[in-house]
Design a protein around this nucleic acid. Structure first.
Lengths: 354, 354
DNA sequence: ATGAAAGCGCTAACAG
DNA sequence: CTGTTAGCGCTTTCAT
């Protein structure tokens, strides 16, 4: 590890002027190494352009002084902050976890730091957040879902920063796009359950825009297959607050069963809701999947370990993260982006619950 | 909403020089409003120091131009980045969710943006991460747990940035501290289960430092109460990879029962593990809590909805987040910090599983 | 391969 | 209450 023992600055010496942070600057390192500041800069940002011996001397000076570059200054001078802003509903959602992990990892490998801004599921603070993010001059912006607000779109376009929208599809992206179709997921689940001889499918969903579109897709698919109309004209639905919880899953099943006892399958907008449904079914002695089939969404790590194991919709989160990062990195390095619009698709993982 | 229609810059006009971002600067706004740049700065940062009429004119100019301040420049000039760095094992852990939410909320209300850096549970990248974080010159740093690495401590101290360690206790904090004792939790759980006439307590834990200290506390407590030694000399333990999952909870119970069939209570290092234990118990027809009592940790939102409802250790996460933020905000504003070292304690929430 | 000069866009400090 | 001046710490550009 670095040697940072020599003359720690800060309170120790105290620079003359009243401004400045009182820390080691690039000029201090340069003086110690007997070179110009720009050479230290090159050692840090383009070491291959510096002679081996100079490199060594400068690096020693860096270690001796404990110099840590000031990226505010560097970013201001170069117009490259090495910062990526990611707008997410909430950082804690397990559904996105693998995506943000891969995103962060990919960016990190290219020298960028990803900073998250939480919009909340309503997206109320989205506009304000975009402004404060742009104020930090990120080199790229990653959005969860499609940006609908016109003012938000305008700001992003005018900021002239590479933007990737993710986790959804639209014919009119702001810039780049990596996602999949929520409607198609719903339709595919309807088809899947129809294949399992289920004829009365219900939905338990969180009040989140994309979840509702999956529900809509299910209704479309069910109608097309003629199964939604066998016993009733519409798909029974229970809507809970976002994000979905085990508790709302339980409540959802109770409510659904009371209103529509003929229901024989439930499509949940998240695996957590699905787990709640199965726990409630268990408690009531309702056999899953025989009496009621359960399909989740997200394929979270616990889906394989529930009883019965959960059949669920799986999306390649890491791929979304990686591809989104790649888009922005390519753009930042002046390369043309191979695939600025990508549909990563989805799959239904068949287990025991449906 | 803002009016950002007038002459969007960027590609449109193209400034003469080759440098710069080509965006609206404070001088553009100043010119349009007929004031000096510093006045625009004041409108943004200290509006009460500007005459009402001037304020209005400048604000109109800001809206007309769509000006978004450049915080890299502002931060460099003022030595205040309005950025807070939070180092966390992983942003997705539900155990910390409420803490980071409250932290972000409190900082946000004071004009700071919180950026997260993920160290991983092993803490391997911690040192490197500290360096890259310091490079952005945050106004404060929040750590999850205690910083053990000497080089990390040195860097933080030399950076001369306010630091709060959280979610743990130590007699030698780097700077400020908001946490609780993991050992005491373990001891309290031992006492609690002893009160429930349990005499053979086992532990299922993730391989995470603080979780292991809770387990150690349990062993200490059990030994002191004389219950660990009634049937065997040590507390049976199952250690899973961090973070704990439903699946490892199930595996843990299977393993424990095979090796120590006399076990009558299990303390899990997270509610997710506990849920796994209960699902496995359910599948095997083992009555909880009669045959085996289960205690979790975290009091996650689903704990109240499991069957049986989960008895678990609850920590006031939001309080930790709020207090940690307050410490740094007070320090940043030159105020003395009322309580630089806080023990927020914990409680055992009694439900049905134990 | 290295350096000198000139800013990046903003705000602290000191007038007035 | 408002303005002038001089940087913040770094990197671009252009020379050598």
């Amino acid at each position: 590890m670095d040697d940072i023992s020599a003359s720690p600055p800060g309170h120790t010496e105290g620079r003359r002027g009243r401004r400045g942070s009182g820390k080691v600057r690039i000029t201090d390192v340069a003086k110690l190494a007997g070179v110009a500041p720009i050479t230290v800069s090159r050692v840090l940002n383009a070491p291959s352009s510096v002679a081996a011996e100079t490199l060594r001397r400068v690096q020693e000076a860096i270690n001796r002084t404990g110099y840590v570059p000031n990226m505010l200054a560097g970013g201001l001078a170069s117009s490259r902050s090495h910062l990526i802003a990611a707008l997410v509903p909430t950082i804690a959602s397990p559904v996105f976890q693998a995506t943000w992990e891969a995103l962060t990892e990919t960016f990190s490998g290219a020298g960028y730091h990803v900073t998250f801004g939480q919009t909340g599921y309503g997206g109320a603070r989205e506009d304000e957040l975009i402004k404060t993010m742009i104020a930090r001059r990120p080199d790229g912006i990653v959005l969860t879902g499609i940006m609908h607000s016109p003012s938000g779109r305008r700001r992003l376009i005018e900021a002239d920063i590479p933007v990737v929208e993710t986790w959804d599809l639209t014919p009119t992206p702001i810039d780049m796009l990596v996602g999949f179709s929520h409607e198609h997921i719903g339709e595919a689940v309807a088809k899947y359950l129809h294949g399992k001889k289920k004829i009365r499918i219900a939905v338990i969903t969180a009040a989140d825009e994309r979840a509702r579109r999956r529900a809509k897709g299910l209704a479309t698919g069910a109608a097309r297959l003629g199964i939604a109309t066998i016993l009733a004209p519409e798909v029974p639905m229970f809507v809970a607050a976002a994000p979905g919880t085990l508790g709302s899953g339980r409540k959802g099943l109770i409510d659904l069963l009371a209103r529509h006892p003929e229901v024989d399958a439930v499509f949940c907008s998240s695996d957590m809701l699905a787990l709640g449904v199965m726990i409630e079914a268990q408690a009531r002695g309702i056999p899953v999947p025989e009496r009621i089939a359960v399909v989740g969404y997200g394929d979270l790590n616990f889906a394989v370990d529930t009883v019965p194991a959960l059949t669920t919709v799986s999306v390649d989160g890491p791929a979304i993260g990686r591809l989104a990062a790649r888009c922005i990195i390519d753009r930042a390095q002046g390369r043309s982006v191979a695939e600025p619009i990508v549909d990563v698709g989805f799959s239904i993982v068949e287990r025991a619950s449906a």
